[in-house]
Write a protein that binds this DNA or RNA. Structure first.
Length: 258
DNA sequence: ATGGCAGCCGTGGGCTGA
Protein backbone atom coordinates (compact mmCIF):
# COMPACT_ATOMS: atom_id res chain seq x y z
CA UNK A 1 0.00 0.00 0.00
CA UNK A 2 1.31 3.44 -0.96
CA UNK A 3 0.52 6.17 1.56
CA UNK A 4 1.33 9.82 0.97
CA UNK A 5 1.06 13.30 2.41
CA UNK A 6 0.88 16.70 0.72
CA UNK A 7 0.30 20.22 1.97
CA UNK A 8 -1.50 21.67 -1.05
CA UNK A 9 -1.83 25.30 0.17
CA UNK A 10 -5.47 25.69 -0.97
CA UNK A 11 -7.28 22.73 -2.46
CA UNK A 12 -9.36 25.09 -4.58
CA UNK A 13 -6.22 26.25 -6.39
CA UNK A 14 -4.45 22.87 -6.36
CA UNK A 15 -7.31 20.47 -7.15
CA UNK A 16 -6.03 19.63 -10.64
CA UNK A 17 -2.50 19.12 -9.29
CA UNK A 18 -3.85 16.62 -6.78
CA UNK A 19 -5.76 14.74 -9.48
CA UNK A 20 -2.69 14.72 -11.75
CA UNK A 21 -0.44 13.54 -8.94
CA UNK A 22 -2.76 10.73 -7.93
CA UNK A 23 -2.50 9.47 -11.50
CA UNK A 24 1.28 9.76 -11.49
CA UNK A 25 1.96 8.34 -8.05
CA UNK A 26 -0.76 5.70 -7.91
CA UNK A 27 -1.06 6.46 -4.19
CA UNK A 28 -3.64 4.38 -2.33
CA UNK A 29 -3.98 6.91 0.46
CA UNK A 30 -3.25 10.64 0.22
CA UNK A 31 -3.34 12.83 3.31
CA UNK A 32 -3.93 16.51 2.49
CA UNK A 33 -3.25 19.63 4.54
CA UNK A 34 -4.10 23.32 4.22
CA UNK A 35 -7.32 22.79 2.30
CA UNK A 36 -8.35 26.38 3.09
CA UNK A 37 -11.99 25.69 2.38
CA UNK A 38 -15.20 24.82 4.18
CA UNK A 39 -16.56 21.27 3.95
CA UNK A 40 -19.35 22.30 1.56
CA UNK A 41 -16.66 23.41 -0.93
CA UNK A 42 -14.66 20.18 -0.80
CA UNK A 43 -14.61 18.71 -4.35
CA UNK A 44 -15.69 15.27 -3.17
CA UNK A 45 -17.47 14.28 -6.39
CA UNK A 46 -14.49 15.23 -8.55
CA UNK A 47 -12.26 12.88 -6.55
CA UNK A 48 -14.96 10.22 -6.65
CA UNK A 49 -14.98 10.44 -10.45
CA UNK A 50 -11.21 9.89 -10.33
CA UNK A 51 -11.66 6.77 -8.20
CA UNK A 52 -11.02 8.17 -4.70
CA UNK A 53 -13.27 8.50 -1.69
CA UNK A 54 -12.59 11.34 0.70
CA UNK A 55 -12.91 12.32 4.35
CA UNK A 56 -12.15 15.84 5.48
CA UNK A 57 -12.34 18.48 8.19
CA UNK A 58 -12.24 21.99 6.78
CA UNK A 59 -12.85 25.59 7.72
CA UNK A 60 -12.87 28.97 6.03
CA UNK A 61 -9.56 30.54 4.93
CA UNK A 62 -7.10 28.51 7.03
CA UNK A 63 -6.03 24.98 7.92
CA UNK A 64 -8.21 22.03 6.94
CA UNK A 65 -7.14 18.39 6.49
CA UNK A 66 -8.37 15.43 4.49
CA UNK A 67 -7.73 11.84 3.48
CA UNK A 68 -8.28 10.46 -0.04
CA UNK A 69 -8.57 6.69 -0.40
CA UNK A 70 -8.48 4.74 -3.62
CA UNK A 71 -11.59 2.70 -4.44
CA UNK A 72 -11.16 -0.91 -3.40
CA UNK A 73 -9.10 -0.05 -0.31
CA UNK A 74 -11.23 -0.79 2.75
CA UNK A 75 -12.13 2.05 5.10
CA UNK A 76 -13.73 1.51 8.51
CA UNK A 77 -16.43 4.19 8.25
CA UNK A 78 -17.03 4.31 11.98
CA UNK A 79 -13.35 4.88 12.72
CA UNK A 80 -13.11 8.45 11.41
CA UNK A 81 -12.04 10.98 14.05
CA UNK A 82 -11.72 14.74 13.55
CA UNK A 83 -9.45 16.84 15.78
CA UNK A 84 -7.49 15.62 18.79
CA UNK A 85 -10.01 14.14 21.22
CA UNK A 86 -10.20 16.22 24.40
CA UNK A 87 -8.28 19.14 22.86
CA UNK A 88 -10.82 21.86 22.20
CA UNK A 89 -9.66 23.67 19.08
CA UNK A 90 -11.55 25.58 16.38
CA UNK A 91 -8.59 25.05 14.02
CA UNK A 92 -9.08 21.98 11.84
CA UNK A 93 -5.72 20.20 11.93
CA UNK A 94 -6.31 16.48 12.40
CA UNK A 95 -8.34 13.73 10.79
CA UNK A 96 -7.81 10.02 11.40
CA UNK A 97 -9.29 6.86 9.92
CA UNK A 98 -8.61 3.14 9.90
CA UNK A 99 -7.77 2.16 6.33
CA UNK A 100 -6.91 -1.38 5.32
CA UNK A 101 -6.28 -2.10 8.99
CA UNK A 102 -3.85 0.81 9.35
CA UNK A 103 -4.59 3.81 11.55
CA UNK A 104 -3.91 6.77 9.26
CA UNK A 105 -3.54 10.21 10.86
CA UNK A 106 -3.44 13.27 8.59
CA UNK A 107 -2.10 16.23 10.56
CA UNK A 108 -1.33 19.89 9.94
CA UNK A 109 0.90 20.94 12.82
CA UNK A 110 0.75 24.62 13.83
CA UNK A 111 3.37 26.83 12.23
CA UNK A 112 4.36 28.62 15.43
CA UNK A 113 5.31 31.88 13.66
CA UNK A 114 8.18 32.80 16.01
CA UNK A 115 9.82 31.22 19.05
CA UNK A 116 8.34 32.80 22.16
CA UNK A 117 5.17 34.08 20.47
CA UNK A 118 1.62 33.21 21.49
CA UNK A 119 1.34 31.10 18.32
CA UNK A 120 4.47 29.23 19.36
CA UNK A 121 2.95 28.51 22.78
CA UNK A 122 -0.13 27.15 20.99
CA UNK A 123 2.12 24.94 18.85
CA UNK A 124 3.65 23.47 22.02
CA UNK A 125 0.25 22.89 23.65
CA UNK A 126 -1.01 21.28 20.44
CA UNK A 127 2.07 19.02 20.29
CA UNK A 128 1.54 18.00 23.93
CA UNK A 129 -2.07 17.08 23.16
CA UNK A 130 -1.10 15.16 20.02
CA UNK A 131 1.55 13.23 21.94
CA UNK A 132 -0.81 12.29 24.76
CA UNK A 133 -3.55 11.22 22.35
CA UNK A 134 -1.12 9.09 20.31
CA UNK A 135 -0.06 7.12 23.40
CA UNK A 136 -3.56 5.63 23.52
CA UNK A 137 -3.99 5.57 19.76
CA UNK A 138 -0.88 3.41 19.20
CA UNK A 139 -2.00 1.03 21.96
CA UNK A 140 -5.36 0.66 20.23
CA UNK A 141 -3.84 0.51 16.74
CA UNK A 142 -0.36 -1.08 16.65
CA UNK A 143 -0.28 -0.32 12.92
CA UNK A 144 -0.29 3.48 12.89
CA UNK A 145 1.05 6.09 10.47
CA UNK A 146 1.29 9.79 11.32
CA UNK A 147 1.50 11.75 8.07
CA UNK A 148 1.51 15.45 7.54
CA UNK A 149 3.07 18.87 7.59
CA UNK A 150 4.87 18.79 10.94
CA UNK A 151 6.31 22.30 10.60
CA UNK A 152 9.44 20.90 12.25
CA UNK A 153 12.78 20.16 10.56
CA UNK A 154 14.07 17.40 12.86
CA UNK A 155 17.81 17.75 12.27
CA UNK A 156 20.33 20.16 10.75
CA UNK A 157 20.64 17.93 7.69
CA UNK A 158 16.96 18.73 7.04
CA UNK A 159 17.81 22.43 6.69
CA UNK A 160 19.48 24.07 3.67
CA UNK A 161 21.39 26.55 5.82
CA UNK A 162 21.48 25.38 9.44
CA UNK A 163 23.56 28.34 10.59
CA UNK A 164 21.09 30.89 9.25
CA UNK A 165 18.18 28.95 10.75
CA UNK A 166 19.75 28.16 14.12
CA UNK A 167 17.22 28.56 16.94
CA UNK A 168 14.50 29.85 14.60
CA UNK A 169 10.92 28.73 14.42
CA UNK A 170 10.61 25.29 12.70
CA UNK A 171 14.09 24.19 13.89
CA UNK A 172 14.23 25.35 17.52
CA UNK A 173 15.38 22.93 20.27
CA UNK A 174 11.88 22.97 21.80
CA UNK A 175 10.27 21.86 18.55
CA UNK A 176 12.93 19.25 17.86
CA UNK A 177 12.45 17.89 21.38
CA UNK A 178 8.74 17.48 20.59
CA UNK A 179 9.63 15.59 17.41
CA UNK A 180 11.95 13.32 19.43
CA UNK A 181 9.14 12.77 21.93
CA UNK A 182 6.85 11.58 19.11
CA UNK A 183 9.58 9.22 17.94
CA UNK A 184 9.81 8.07 21.55
CA UNK A 185 6.29 6.68 21.23
CA UNK A 186 7.84 4.00 19.06
CA UNK A 187 7.54 5.82 15.75
CA UNK A 188 10.11 5.77 12.96
CA UNK A 189 10.85 8.54 10.46
CA UNK A 190 10.30 6.44 7.34
CA UNK A 191 12.37 8.82 5.19
CA UNK A 192 15.45 7.97 7.28
CA UNK A 193 14.90 4.23 7.00
CA UNK A 194 16.47 4.47 3.57
CA UNK A 195 19.46 6.03 1.90
CA UNK A 196 18.43 9.43 0.58
CA UNK A 197 20.02 12.09 -1.60
CA UNK A 198 21.76 14.92 0.28
CA UNK A 199 19.74 18.07 0.84
CA UNK A 200 16.37 16.69 -0.14
CA UNK A 201 13.64 18.90 1.29
CA UNK A 202 9.83 19.06 1.20
CA UNK A 203 9.22 22.80 1.39
CA UNK A 204 10.75 25.80 -0.40
CA UNK A 205 9.72 29.41 0.08
CA UNK A 206 7.92 31.01 -2.84
CA UNK A 207 10.26 33.96 -2.50
CA UNK A 208 13.93 34.44 -3.33
CA UNK A 209 13.94 31.74 -6.02
CA UNK A 210 14.21 29.32 -3.14
CA UNK A 211 13.24 26.21 -5.10
CA UNK A 212 15.74 26.92 -7.87
CA UNK A 213 18.42 27.38 -5.19
CA UNK A 214 17.14 24.34 -3.26
CA UNK A 215 16.85 26.60 -0.21
CA UNK A 216 14.37 24.38 1.57
CA UNK A 217 13.46 22.48 4.70
CA UNK A 218 12.28 18.92 5.31
CA UNK A 219 9.18 19.51 7.40
CA UNK A 220 6.67 17.04 5.91
CA UNK A 221 7.01 13.57 7.36
CA UNK A 222 5.64 10.05 7.50
CA UNK A 223 6.21 8.45 10.91
CA UNK A 224 5.42 4.76 11.26
CA UNK A 225 4.79 2.58 14.29
CA UNK A 226 7.26 -0.29 14.75
CA UNK A 227 4.91 -2.84 13.26
CA UNK A 228 4.48 -0.74 10.11
CA UNK A 229 8.09 0.41 9.85
CA UNK A 230 9.10 -3.25 9.66
CA UNK A 231 7.05 -3.57 6.47
CA UNK A 232 8.13 -0.28 4.86
CA UNK A 233 10.09 -0.76 1.64
CA UNK A 234 10.43 2.83 0.40
CA UNK A 235 9.95 6.48 1.28
CA UNK A 236 10.42 9.24 -1.27
CA UNK A 237 9.92 12.96 -1.74
CA UNK A 238 8.46 13.79 -5.15
CA UNK A 239 9.78 17.18 -6.23
CA UNK A 240 8.06 17.03 -9.61
CA UNK A 241 4.81 18.84 -8.63
CA UNK A 242 6.85 21.69 -7.16
CA UNK A 243 7.96 22.41 -10.76
CA UNK A 244 4.43 22.61 -12.13
CA UNK A 245 2.74 25.90 -12.94
CA UNK A 246 1.34 27.67 -9.85
CA UNK A 247 2.62 25.00 -7.47
CA UNK A 248 2.12 24.37 -3.78
CA UNK A 249 5.22 25.37 -1.83
CA UNK A 250 5.33 21.80 -0.45
CA UNK A 251 6.24 18.58 -2.22
CA UNK A 252 4.41 15.32 -1.55
CA UNK A 253 6.05 12.50 0.43
CA UNK A 254 5.13 8.90 -0.28
CA UNK A 255 5.90 5.64 1.54
CA UNK A 256 5.29 2.01 0.56
CA UNK A 257 4.15 -0.23 3.41
CA UNK A 258 2.95 -3.80 3.75
C1' DA B 1 18.57 44.60 8.01
C1' DT B 2 14.44 44.12 5.21
C1' DG B 3 11.46 42.12 1.96
C1' DG B 4 10.82 39.30 -1.41
C1' DC B 5 5.66 35.19 -2.90
C1' DA B 6 1.13 33.19 -2.54
C1' DG B 7 -3.67 32.63 -0.93
C1' DC B 8 -7.61 34.47 1.50
C1' DC B 9 -11.12 37.92 2.08
C1' DG B 10 -13.01 41.19 -0.59
C1' DT B 11 -11.79 45.53 -3.06
C1' DG B 12 -7.86 48.22 0.91
C1' DG B 13 -4.36 46.16 2.34
C1' DG B 14 -3.75 43.16 6.41
C1' DC B 15 -3.10 38.43 8.03
C1' DT B 16 -0.88 34.10 7.67
C1' DG B 17 2.23 30.92 6.15
C1' DA B 18 7.30 28.58 6.88
Amino acid sequence: MKIATWNVNSLKVRQQHVLDWLQLSQADVLCLQELKLTDDKFPRTDFEAAGYKSWFAGQKTYNGVGILVRDGVSVDEGSVVRNIPGFDDPQQRVIAATINGVRIVSAYFPNGQAVGSEKFAYKMRWLDALHDWLIDEIKAHPKLALLGDYNIAPEDRDVHDPKAWEGQNLVSPEERAQFVRLVGLGLTDSFRQFEQPEKLFTWWDYRMLAFRRNAGLRIDHILLSAELAATCSACEVDKVPRKWEQPSDHAPVIATIG
